[in-house]
C-alpha cells in the first residue's frame, strides 16, 4: 500500500515536471510576439532616425563603385553607381513603411465599414458586396496589384492604392465574419431591447469588439503587403528611381550576382524577409491568442 502510494507520488512528480517543461514550450506565442515586435520596432526606429544612422545620401552616386561589404566606411558595400547600400536600406525603410501605413489605412477605411454594414444588415447589400469582394479575392494578389499599378503609374501613393485595393477584400471578409458573430451576442440584443439606435450599436458596441480582429488581420496582411510591395518595385511598377526602395534595389542587384557582387541584392532581400517575418510572427501570436481553438 505504502509502496503503491510512493510510486504514485513519484510518478506524479515526474509527470508534473514533464508537463511544466511542455508548458514552457507552449509559451511559444510569447516568444513569437516579442521577437516580432523587436523586429518591427527596430525598423520603425531606423525609419525615424535615418539621417542619424548614416552620413551618406542614398540617391547620390560616387566613384567608389561596387565596394565590398563589411568595411569601416560602407558596412553593406556600395552598388553599381557607388551609392552606399546601408544608406539605401535605411532610407528604403521609410519608403516601405510609409507605403505600408498608407495602404493599410486605405484598406481599413474602405474594407471595414463595408464589412460592418454587410455583416450587420445582411440581406441584398450583403449578397452583392460579398460577390464583388469574393471576385476580387479570387485574383492572384500580385497580379491584381500590378494591373492597378500599371494603370495608375509609378508613385508611392499609387503603389499604396494598388496594394490597398488587393487587401480590401481581406479586411472586408474578416470584419464581416466577426460582425456576424458579435451581432449574435446577447449584449447586442439587449442594446436593441433598450431602444438603442442602430448607428450607436454599430459604433459603441460592435466596433470596439472588432478591434482585436483588426489588429490580427493587420499584422498578418502587413507581412503579405510587404512582399507585394517588394514584388511590385522589383518588377518596376512601384516608386521611380532614384528613390531608395528595397524591391527595386533587389532587381538592380540581380544582374551583378553572377559576377560575384552578391551584396547588391542580398541586403535589400534580407530586409524584405526580415520585416515581413516580423509582422508574420506578431500576427501568428495574436491570432493564436484571439482564437485559441484554431
Amino acid at each position: 500500500m505504502d509502496d503503491d502510494l510512493k510510486t504514485i507520488v513519484v510518478k506524479h512528480g515526474l509527470m508534473s515536471r514533464l508537463f511544466s517543461v511542455i508548458g514552457r514550450f507552449t509559451g511559444w506565442r510569447t516568444g513569437f510576439m516579442i521577437s516580432g515586435m523587436i523586429i518591427i520596432l527596430m525598423f520603425v526606429f531606423i525609419a525615424i532616425t535615418a539621417p542619424l544612422l548614416t552620413p551618406f545620401d542614398p540617391t547620390k552616386g560616387s566613384s567608389d563603385v561596387l565596394q565590398p561589404p563589411f568595411t569601416y566606411i560602407h558596412i553593406f558595400g556600395t552598388d553599381n553607381l557607388g551609392r552606399d547600400i546601408f544608406a539605401r536600406i535605411v532610407y528604403g525603410t521609410r519608403t516601405i513603411l510609409s507605403i505600408l501605413l498608407l495602404s493599410t489605412l486605405i484598406s481599413i477605411t474602405i474594407g471595414m465599414p463595408l464589412g460592418l454594414v454587410s455583416g450587420f444588415f445582411s440581406g441584398v447589400i450583403d449578397r452583392i458586396l460579398s460577390i464583388v469582394m469574393d471576385s476580387i479575392y479570387a485574383f492572384p494578389s500580385l497580379l491584381l496589384a500590378i494591373v492597378i499599378a500599371l494603370m495608375l503609374g509609378p508613385s508611392p501613393l499609387n503603389t499604396a492604392i494598388s496594394i490597398a485595393f488587393v487587401y480590401i477584400p481581406t479586411y472586408y471578409r474578416m470584419i464581416r465574419g466577426q460582425t456576424l458573430s458579435i451581432k449574435a451576442q446577447l449584449y447586442i440584443e439587449a442594446a436593441i431591447a433598450s431602444g438603442t439606435r442602430t448607428r450607436k450599436i454599430l459604433i459603441k458596441h460592435i466596433l470596439p469588439n472588432l478591434l482585436p480582429t483588426l489588429v490580427v488581420i493587420f499584422s498578418l496582411s502587413a507581412a503579405d503587403a510587404i512582399l507585394t510591395e517588394a514584388g511590385l518595385s522589383y518588377l518596376g511598377y512601384s516608386v521611380t528611381p532614384p528613390t531608395p526602395d528595397w524591391g527595386y534595389d533587389l532587381y538592380v542587384g540581380r544582374e551583378y550576382v553572377l559576377s560575384g557582387y552578391w551584396w547588391l541584392s542580398f541586403f535589400p532581400g534580407l530586409m524584405v524577409v526580415l520585416l515581413s517575418v516580423g509582422f508574420a510572427l506578431v500576427g501568428e501570436a495574436l491570432s493564436d491568442i484571439y482564437n485559441p481553438r484554431r
Partner: peptide
C-alpha cells in the same frame, strides 16, 4: 423599447457589453 417596455435577459454573463 426601453421607454415603455424594459427587458431583462436570462443570462447576465453575456447580456452586458464586456
Amino acid at each position: 423599447r426601453g421607454r415603455k417596455i424594459g427587458f431583462v435577459f436570462q443570462d447576465p454573463f453575456t447580456s452586458l457589453d464586456p
